[in-house]
């Protein structure tokens, strides 16, 4: 499995998101220090690192979710398709429709399964009639490998599903707005191994349409699903490169210590 991934070519080299000198402060705490990273289109990029290293914080900078935290301040330049996302002219609401996000804990809305998926298309006016909306809901649930399990109870509340199903529902909800980038913050940490395997398979399929950025604590998961890996430590981006190279031949001694289990 791992060997096969080493062979997997990065399909394209187009840069989707570029960060230069990104700094994040929580009040006086300097959480992210001078991070430069290029996230490629149609690629799965994994952020790994010990707890508290800033990988989730950095992920939340990419769709400006940190704006909702009053004490948080972001400096530096982050661009999406060469457009600065922190430019005052950019509407964070529109930005988040282009950069979808899946959270650590499944967070379905207290609505029906159908309404959960239809939420994004409805608020962005992506459909002209009910038939189109139905089609989007079905195709997103199919892409999230959930359709067969829920097609007979679309009106049932999303919160009634199992943990793994809820997380796949959240993924379906996120891809229903047809984002260009999908950010995933430890999407499998609350799931059992079978549900994890399903989500990982899903991530691999989503790569054909979006650029996926995944934060994970599991190095096996990073190795399985990603083509590029970034290692964060204490707010610094220590090393960033091809997943195979990071796991077999890391350049930085800290990366080597982490992946071999000596720090973390």
């Amino acid at each position: 499995m791992k060997d096969q991934r080493l062979e997997s070519r990065v399909d394209t080299q187009t840069i989707k998101i570029q960060a230069r000198g990104a700094q994040v402060y929580y009040g006086t705490n300097h959480a992210i220090k001078d991070v430069d990273v290029d996230i490629l289109d149609k690629t799965v990029t994994a952020f790994i690192g010990p707890s508290g290293c800033g990988k989730s914080t950095f992920l939340r900078c990419l769709n400006r979710m940190n704006d909702t935290i009053a004490s948080c301040r972001v400096e530096g330049k982050i661009t999406l398709d060469d457009e600065d996302i922190y430019d005052p002219r950019v509407d964070p609401v529109q930005l988040r429709a282009r950069i979808g996000m899946v959270f650590q804990k499944p967070n379905p809305f207290p609505k029906s399964i159908y309404d959960n998926v239809a939420y994004g298309p409805k608020i962005h006016g992506l459909t002209r009639n009910k038939a189109e909306l139905d089609a989007i809901v079905e195709s997103c649930l199919r892409k999230a490998a959930l359709w067969n399990e829920v097609k007979d109870r679309l009106a049932a509340p999303g919160t009634g599903l199992s943990g793994g199903q809820q997380q796949r529902l959240c993924i379906a909800r996120a891809i229903a707005t047809s984002p260009e980038v999908l950010l995933m913050d430890e999407p499998c940490s609350a799931l059992d191994p079978i549900a994890t395997a399903q989500v990982e398979e899903l991530i691999d399929e989503l790569r054909s349409q979006f650029s996926v950025v995944i934060v994970t604590h599991s190095m096996q998961q990073a190795a399985r699903v990603s083509q590029r890996t970034a290692f964060f430590h204490l707010g610094n981006l220590v090393e960033y490169g091809e997943t195979g190279q990071i796991f077999t031949n890391p350049i930085d001694p800290r990366t080597e210590s982490y992946i071999s289990g000596r720090i973390g």
């Binding site: 769709n63 979710m65 909702t68 609401v93 529109q94 930005l95 988040r96 429709a97 282009r98 979808g100 996000m101 959270f103 804990k105 967070n107 379905p108 809305f109 207290p110 939420y119 994004g120 608020i123 962005h124 959240c170 909800r173 996120a174 707005t177």
Partner: peptide, 21 residues
């Protein structure tokens, strides 16, 4: 808060989030 994050993360405005979620 996770429900609010979920809605905001989909590109909903704060008032849409409040009304619908």
């Amino acid at each position: 808060q996770s429900l609010r994050d979920g809605s905001l993360g989909l590109g909903a405005t704060p008032s849409e989030t409040i009304r619908q979620v």
